[in-house]
Amino acid sequence: MGRDQQADQPFCEVYTLGLVPYADAWNLQKSWVSRHRQSPQPDRLLLVEHPPVYTLGQGSTTENLKFLESNPPHPLFRIERGGEVTHHCPGQLVGYPILDLKRHQTDLHWYLRQLEEVVIQTLATLGIHATRQPGLTGVWVGDTKLAAIGIKVSRWITMHGFALNVCPDLAGFEAIIPCGIADKAVGSVAQFCPGITVAEVVPLVKQSFSEVFSLRLVEAPHPE
């Protein structure tokens, strides 16, 4: 795409903040969503890693926890997104798009497939052939899940998003049944690209996100 074409594209602010406590990123998302209800806002993309944490979807069961809810090995949050329990930790790149789908398509299935496509295209640039699995959300290589997706959409404003396992310690997943799927493995990009880092993957995700959503990404300063 030429420079003139890029300039004509709608823009999206991107915030690349490194390691951020889960509660801080969650509160930032809620603040941005709230602003959309008050006045027009740009689309935004937050890219972070988290210290070890578990999150439960709004309607998820605690039966997928292998620990007592009252005594988790890492902080445990019940949040607004759909889906079951998942784990975040350093080495996992988490993307939280705050998009107004009225500017894109007001279709939740389309949006989920777009998020999967961002990850699939990112992995393709690394020579990894990733796919979808029928009836399941996320991105897979065979029966190994490399990326989880869980969203919340209110008045067509999105929050939460995708988590791509780049080079995390996967041991934390052993304390849960990830996404409620007991018969499939959780893997990482590092299993296919030894030595890879989150810093190397961030620009690839930005490029894929820009192309999939037809948005011109604008690097933004640290949010207030």
Rank of each mutant, 00 (worst) to 15 (best):
I151K: 01
Q207V: 05
P168K: 04
W110Q: 14
P97W: 10
D169Y: 11
L101Q: 12
E80V: 05
V48M: 01
D107N: 15
T55S: 05
L45W: 02
N165G: 01
I176P: 03
Q6E: 15
A182F: 06
L56V: 06
R103Y: 04
H160E: 12
A147D: 05
Q29H: 04
P221G: 01
T62E: 09
L126H: 09
P221L: 03
L93T: 09
R35T: 08
G91E: 01
E13V: 10
Q6P: 01
D24K: 15
E219Q: 10
V166L: 08
L76Q: 05
L136D: 07
F192R: 09
I151A: 05
H74Y: 13
V202T: 14
N165M: 06
L47D: 13
S31P: 03
L28D: 02
M159Y: 02
H129F: 13
L123C: 10
E224G: 09
P134K: 12
P134C: 09
G2Q: 13
N64D: 15
Q38K: 14
I181M: 07
G57W: 04
E219I: 00
Y111E: 00
A175T: 14
S70F: 04
I98F: 01
H160C: 08
A130H: 12
Q92A: 12
A199Q: 14
W140E: 02
C167F: 00
K152V: 10
D107R: 07
G57Q: 02
L68P: 00
L99W: 00
A171I: 01
G161H: 01
R216V: 05
V198A: 13
T16G: 06
E174K: 15
Q191G: 12
Q5R: 08
V166A: 10
T16H: 08
Q58W: 14
V119C: 09
A148I: 02
T197G: 02
V212I: 15
T158R: 00
H36Q: 04
E13M: 14
Q92M: 11
E84N: 15
P221T: 02
P40V: 08
K145N: 05
G138T: 03
L164I: 04
A130I: 12
P178Y: 07
Q133H: 15
P75W: 11
S188I: 04
W156D: 04
Q114R: 13
R35S: 15
R81T: 01
H222E: 14
F173G: 10
N64W: 10
V48E: 06
F67Q: 09
Q6F: 09
V33L: 07
K30R: 15
L215S: 03
A130N: 11
Y54A: 00
V186D: 09
F67R: 11
